[in-house]
């Protein structure tokens, strides 16, 4: 028996919004430690890794490890039927071929449930090696989204250059060149507005705008985003999900032809 309950459907809606542009379907691996999802986008350029800890749920029970393959378009249709403040509960029997998603209004006067067919998806788990990153940048998630959106107008690629002075995002195309520099913030009243750079050595890497923009669909989940970079390894873009877990996106760099 698997049962996981969250106080607010809005969190699950935001999580789905953060992954459904990259993934058509995905397997949710449930165990007593929580829910894990790892999947590559169709073109195998990026990897999404979602971790939701069992202690972050209002109620969590998972008697046996369970892999639930879900069509994310179908799940989005179901989540559209929930009000943001509704409680949401996911339930499945051991070895079931369906999952039930139930919404309850705060006053318990409206209860709706949706049974969704599960899919057998080919599981291709990738091993992610531990990396000592050259640069780790923490910055406001909204600012990162804005930069990715703005620079996508100029080029298919963004060059991210990180030094101890700051981080520079550049794009160059037919229109010309765009450069956006962010300096490390000295002192800020609000932690969520800070730009913080931890640098071992400077790094310059090129990434596809299209994927960066897809990752920023996670912006509503978190006030800050963390970018971890190292020469010739995938970029890690991490959004914390408060008291519940995190979503990490890995993006392979572009290299010169």
């Amino acid at each position: 028996m698997f049962e996981a309950r969250l106080g607010q459907a809005t969190i699950l809606k935001k999580i789905l919004d953060a992954i459904k542009d990259l993934l058509n379907e995905a397997t949710f691996d449930c165990s007593d430690s929580g829910i894990q999802l790892q999947a590559m986008d169709n073109s195998h350029v990026s990897l999404v890794s979602l971790t939701l800890r069992s202690d972050g749920f209002d109620k969590f029970r998972c008697d046996r490890n369970l892999s639930m393959g879900m069509n994310l378009g179908s799940m989005a249709k179901i989540l559209k039927c929930a009000n943001n403040e509704d409680n949401v509960t996911m339930k499945a029997q051991d070895n079931a071929d369906t999952v039930t998603i139930m919404f309850e209004s705060a006053n318990q006067e409206k209860v709706s449930d949706y049974e969704m067919k599960l899919m057998n998806l080919d599981q291709e788990h990738l091993g992610i090696p531990e990396t000592d990153f050259s640069c780790v940048v923490r910055m406001p998630a909204m600012e990162f989204a804005r930069i990715c959106r703005d620079l996508a107008q100029f080029s298919e690629s963004v060059v991210i250059c990180c030094t101890k002075e700051g981080v520079k995002f550049s794009a160059s195309g037919d229109v010309g060149t765009a450069n956006i520099k962010l300096a490390q913030t000295g002192s800020v009243d609000k932690e969520e507005e800070a730009v913080i750079i931890e640098m071992q050595e400077p790094v310059t890497l090129t990434f596809a705008c299209r994927y960066l923009n897809a990752f920023t669909k996670a912006t509503p989940l978190s006030t800050q985003v963390q970018l971890s970079m190292c020469a010739d390894v995938p970029l890690v873009v991490e959004y914390a999900i408060k008291d519940l877990g995190h979503i990490r996106y890995y993006l392979a760099p572009k290299i010169e032809d």
Binding site: H44, V45, E124, H125, L126, G127, P234, A252, I255, D257
Partner: peptide
């Protein structure tokens, strides 16, 4: 050139 994520992370 866009590299594939599988050229960095190997299947388990």
């Amino acid at each position: 050139m866009q590299k594939s994520i599988t050229s960095f992370f190997k299947k388990q």
